[in-house]
């Protein structure tokens, strides 16, 4: 019995501060948020019920046109952002993985955008993605197109009436995170021993076939991790969109920016809590299966 205590007590004492901190500040606050999201609220001045309480708070928000618009924007943003970043990251890593001349230099160049904060990058991209068009009016990318005599390429970017306009908002995000994905893939390539390439070459495989059948399959765990990291970043993305589009922008509305409006402009804590809970569930739907999958493969590997 005393032996038993000796084995588990020191370990428990060691981890207990972090269990308490995480319990209070992560799970405790999640619980509090969910509790808040179920409240009934009434506007004292107008004497109207703002939030009916319980599950109806959720059906109210999910049923509103604005929220569905925000979710659609989030879907467009996430899909374009994921595809764009993965393609660019993989392309750059393939270009660099063979030890090209000046590799260190290019690696830094590609990675640097990640060191810029979303807010600072957003201020520049707000100007680059200005919807103004025409000689003397255009700014940023549209002005560049005019200078290059490619006037037909001018567009309103994320302000355009198209339902897919949010794809333009993915551009700055792709610019910032492609370098990071490149670094992940590059590490993956470096982890594959040269013997395998040699063996494949001796067997008569072309370069393309080496990538297709030998190297890429071994990168799939990295690609999956990259997808999960990017996916949850995209869903939580707030600062970039806010610094580009400002408050109250309908075209650039995603659940995260809508939450800011609900909380600070409309002063509606309950709607903001409902929104936060829905976002948490969406992210969990993506992340939890991944965690289960990695746990299982790690156990199988032992």
């Amino acid at each position: 019995m005393r032996n038993g205590v000796k084995t588990w007590l020191p370990g428990l004492l060691l981890v207990s501060p972090s269990i308490v901190l995480v319990g209070v500040f992560v799970y405790g606050l999640i619980g509090r948020n969910v509790y808040t999201s179920l409240n009934v609220t009434r506007n004292i001045v107008t004497d109207k019920i703002v939030n009916p309480g319980g599950y109806r708070n959720y059906t109210k928000l999910l049923g509103s046109d604005d929220y569905q618009h925000a979710l659609w924007n989030l879907l467009v943003l996430t899909v374009v952002f994921l595809i764009g970043t993965m393609v660019m990251g993989l392309l750059w890593s393939v270009l660099l993985e063979k030890g090209a001349r000046g590799e260190g230099f290019f690696r830094s160049v590609y990675l640097f955008p990640m060191a810029v904060s979303f807010i600072a990058g957003g201020v520049v991209w707000r100007w680059l993605l200005s919807p103004a068009q025409g000689e003397g009016q255009a700014l940023g990318l549209n002005q560049l197109f005019i200078k290059l005599h490619l006037d037909g390429l001018q567009n309103q970017w994320w302000s355009s009436p198209s339902a897919f306009s949010m794809a333009a908002m993915a551009m700055p995000a792709i610019w910032q995170l492609s370098g990071y994905i490149m670094a992940l893939f590059l590490a993956g390539f470096r982890g594959i021993s040269d013997d395998q390439r040699e063996a494949a070459r001796i067997d008569g495989a072309s370069e393309w076939k080496i990538y297709r059948h030998v190297l890429f399959p071994q990168l799939s765990p990295i690609a999956l991790s990259a997808l999960i990291i990017l996916g949850h970043m995209s869903m939580k993305m707030f600062d970039l969109i806010y610094s580009i589009a400002g408050p109250n922008s309908y075209k650039a509305m995603v659940p995260a920016t809508l939450m800011w409006t609900q909380m600070f402009a409309s002063n509606d804590k309950v709607a903001a809590a409902v929104n936060a809970t829905i976002l948490l569930v969406i992210v969990a739907v993506v992340v939890v299966p991944y965690l289960i999958y990695t746990n299982r493969t790690e156990q199988e590997g032992r």
Binding site: S159, S160, P247, N248, S249, Y250, K251, A265, N267
Partner: peptide
């Protein structure tokens, strides 16, 4: 108008800016 009302009007105007 109150801040909350102003916010709703702003969102409507922002929506109109794109949809006309």
């Amino acid at each position: 108008v109150s801040l909350a009302w102003n916010t709703d009007i702003s969102t409507a105007v922002s929506k109109f800016h794109a949809s006309r």
